[in-house]
Amino acid sequence: SPEEIKAKALDLLNKKLHRANKFGQDQADIDSLQRQINRVEKFGVDLNSKLAEELGLV
Rank of each mutant, 00 (worst) to 15 (best):
S1I: 07
L55H: 01
E54V: 07
L47G: 05
L13D: 00
I30F: 04
E53Y: 13
D46H: 06
L55N: 01
V45R: 00
N14I: 14
G44Y: 02
N21P: 02
V58C: 10
L12R: 05
L17Q: 01
R39N: 13
D31Y: 05
A28H: 10
L12Q: 04
E3Q: 08
A52W: 10
G24T: 06
I37M: 04
I30G: 02
L55T: 02
D46Q: 08
L47N: 04
Q36A: 10
L55P: 01
L57V: 07
V58Q: 10
Q34L: 15
I5C: 09
L10S: 00
L55E: 01
A7H: 08
N21D: 04
A9T: 02
D11W: 12
K16S: 04
L57K: 03
S49W: 05
A9Y: 04
E41A: 09
L47V: 08
K8P: 00
N38S: 13
D29Y: 15
G56S: 05
R39T: 12
Q36V: 08
V40E: 00
S49H: 03
K16M: 14
V45T: 02
K22R: 12
L17T: 01
F43K: 03
L10F: 01
L17F: 04
P2I: 10
Q34M: 15
Q36H: 06
F23E: 14
H18P: 00
L55F: 03
R39L: 14
A7T: 09
K50I: 08
D31G: 05
F23Y: 13
D26V: 09
Q36T: 08
S1M: 07
H18L: 14
D31T: 09
L51G: 01
A9S: 02
N14W: 15
D26C: 13
R39C: 15
N38I: 13
L57F: 11
E53S: 09
L33T: 02
P2M: 14
N48F: 11
N21H: 15
G24D: 05
E53C: 12
F23G: 06
Q36Y: 07
S1V: 07
G24P: 07
A52I: 05
N38T: 13
A9K: 00
K15F: 05
L13E: 00
S32E: 15
N38M: 12
D26H: 11
N38F: 07
E54T: 06
G24C: 10
F43M: 07
L57D: 03
A52E: 02
L33Y: 04
V58R: 11
D26W: 05
D11Y: 12
A52P: 02
A7N: 10
K16H: 04
K15Y: 06
F43N: 05
R19E: 11
E41G: 05
K50L: 10
V40Y: 01
L55K: 00
Q25R: 14
R19T: 08
R35D: 13
L33M: 04
V40P: 00
E41T: 13
L33Q: 01
K42H: 08
A7G: 06
G44W: 01
Q34E: 09
S49C: 04
I5G: 03
L51I: 06
E53R: 13
G44P: 01
L57G: 03
Q27W: 08
K42F: 06
N48A: 09
E54H: 05
A28V: 09
I37K: 04
D26G: 11
F43I: 04
K8D: 03
I5V: 09
F43Q: 05
R19H: 12
N14Y: 15
A52S: 04
D29H: 14
Q34K: 14
I5A: 06
L12E: 04
A9M: 06
V40D: 00
L17Y: 03
E54C: 09
N38V: 12
Q27A: 10
I37N: 00
E53L: 14
K42T: 08
L17V: 03
I5Q: 06
K50T: 11
K16T: 02
N14G: 06
A52F: 08
L55G: 01
F43C: 12
K6V: 07
E3V: 06
L12V: 07
I37F: 03
N14P: 00
K6P: 01
Q25M: 15
V40F: 02
L33W: 03
R39W: 15
S1H: 09
G56C: 06
L10T: 01
L12G: 01
V58S: 12
L12T: 04
K6A: 04
N48D: 09
N48E: 08
H18T: 11
I30C: 03
I30D: 02
Q27I: 07
E3C: 10
L55V: 04
R35M: 12
R35Y: 08
L10H: 01
L10Q: 01
I5Y: 12
L17H: 01
E41M: 13
S1R: 09
K42N: 08
A7C: 10
K50Y: 10
V40C: 02
I5H: 07
N14T: 12
L51V: 04
N38P: 00
K22F: 12
G24F: 06
A20L: 11
Q34S: 05
L47I: 10
I37C: 02
H18V: 13
A20H: 03
D46E: 09
N38Y: 10
D11T: 07
E54K: 04
A20Q: 04
E41W: 06
S32R: 14
N14D: 03
A20K: 03
P2T: 11
R19W: 15
A20I: 06
S1D: 11
R19Q: 12
K8Y: 08
D29K: 14
L47W: 08
L55I: 06
K16N: 03
D26S: 15
E4D: 12
A9D: 00
K15N: 08
L33V: 05
R35Q: 11
S32I: 12
F23V: 08
S49Q: 03
L10V: 03
A28P: 04
K42P: 01
V58Y: 11
E54R: 05
K42W: 07
I30T: 04
R39I: 13
L33I: 14
K42I: 10
Q25T: 11
E3I: 07
K42L: 13
G56K: 05
E4G: 08
E53N: 07
D31M: 07
E53P: 01
I37G: 00
F43W: 12
L17C: 02
Q27C: 07
D46N: 08
D31S: 07
V58H: 11
E41D: 05
R19A: 12
R35I: 08
A52M: 07
F23S: 09
R19K: 10
H18N: 12
A7D: 05
I5M: 12
E3L: 09
D46T: 07
E4Q: 12
L17G: 00
K22L: 14
N38R: 14
D29Q: 14
N48P: 04
G56P: 02
D11Q: 13
S49R: 02
L33G: 01
E54W: 14
Q25V: 13
R19I: 11
K15G: 07
R35V: 08
S32L: 14
P2E: 11
I5K: 03
Q25H: 14
G44I: 01
K16I: 06
A9Q: 01
N21E: 11
D31E: 13
A52R: 03
G44L: 02
V45S: 01
L12F: 13
E54I: 09
A9E: 00
S49V: 02
L10E: 01
N48V: 05
N21G: 06
K50E: 12
E54P: 01
E4C: 14
S49T: 06
L12W: 13
K8G: 03
Q34V: 14
L13Q: 00
Q25W: 15
D26Q: 09
K16F: 05
E3M: 08
V45W: 02
D11L: 12
E41Y: 09
A28N: 10
Q27P: 11
G56D: 05
Q36I: 12
A9V: 08
F23T: 11
E4V: 10
Q36C: 14
A52T: 02
Q36G: 01
R19S: 08
V40K: 00
E54D: 06
G44H: 01
D11V: 10
V45M: 05
F23C: 12
L51S: 01
D29E: 15
G44S: 02
G56R: 05
K22T: 12
L47T: 06
E54N: 04
K42C: 10
P2H: 12
S49K: 02
R39Y: 15
E3K: 07
H18A: 15
